[in-house]
Design a protein around this nucleic acid. Structure first.
Lengths: 132, 132
DNA sequence: CGGGATCCGGTCGGATACTG
DNA sequence: CAGTATCCGACCGGATCCCG
């Protein structure tokens, strides 16, 4: 009874141009993935609830992401036959591990934002000024 | 003289629609970011060397990424006045911490690829078959 | 409420050609 | 070698309308 501890090494090399794993990396490296999985990491959400949690995401993109996540076994979609319909999205075990990883990325973005802003200011003044 | 240990909590909330931190998250959640920073995590690279290390990346995208990384203080760009010119890209401390994070994401993609493929097969047969 | 379908502009990103 | 510049197609993603 272990988790994903026993994956020694796959034959896949993600640095190779046609490695099929790129699909997965592209899914994770998506504009909304980190935020959606991050929100679901806290607790299961209903559709509209999730839409409100992730500020700025459109209904289309949320649907598209959730479908992809469901297909890849990252989230489960449960429909309760109420009126109006209630649909709950929750992370699978696999989705939870991805969520943990990506929440770290989100947190890194927040924690390093101020420093990055300063780097940008310094870079821009270095590149733009001389020519003036 | 501390590193980034003392960042208790920024006033930023990345789940808010107009949070400027989204810029940073978008940079990390880019198609090539994880692979480029991952390659640079091993050791500094010259341009062409890096291009070959990250299979499939075009010269344009590599340049674009490296410029953005340099601007945000993730990599340094060092030019040696040789003929032909030698340019070396290396991670800063900030870039190294981002690289560590993103390498975990790459490794997750590889480690979970097989399981995800099975999920897809099962999902597709469940969704496509019934209608025939 | 939880979507599907469609239209459409903007940007991503590859291919190519040229420079020092 | 290490780029810059340009063209251009693909698709990303928002807005809108509609349905059960």
């Amino acid at each position: 009874m272990e988790t994903t501890c026993e994956v020694p090494e796959s034959p896949w090399d993600i640095y190779l141009r046609n490695c099929p794993c790129r699909d997965v990396l592209d899914l994770l490296a998506n504009k909304w993935t980190a935020l959606v999985l991050g929100a679901l990491s806290r607790r299961p959400h209903r559709f509209g609830e999730l839409r409100r949690a992730v500020g700025g995401i459109s209904q289309k993109m949320l649907t598209q992401n959730l479908r992809a996540f469901e297909r890849d076994g990252l989230v489960t979609r449960t429909v309760f036959p109420t009126t109006p319909p209630t649909v709950e999205y929750a992370l699978t075990e696999r989705g939870a591990s991805a969520g943990t990883l990506l929440m770290a990325v989100s947190e890194w973005s927040v924690a390093n934002f101020d420093g990055i802003l300063e780097s940008r200011k310094e870079y821009d003044s270095r590149v733009m000024e001389p020519v003036g």
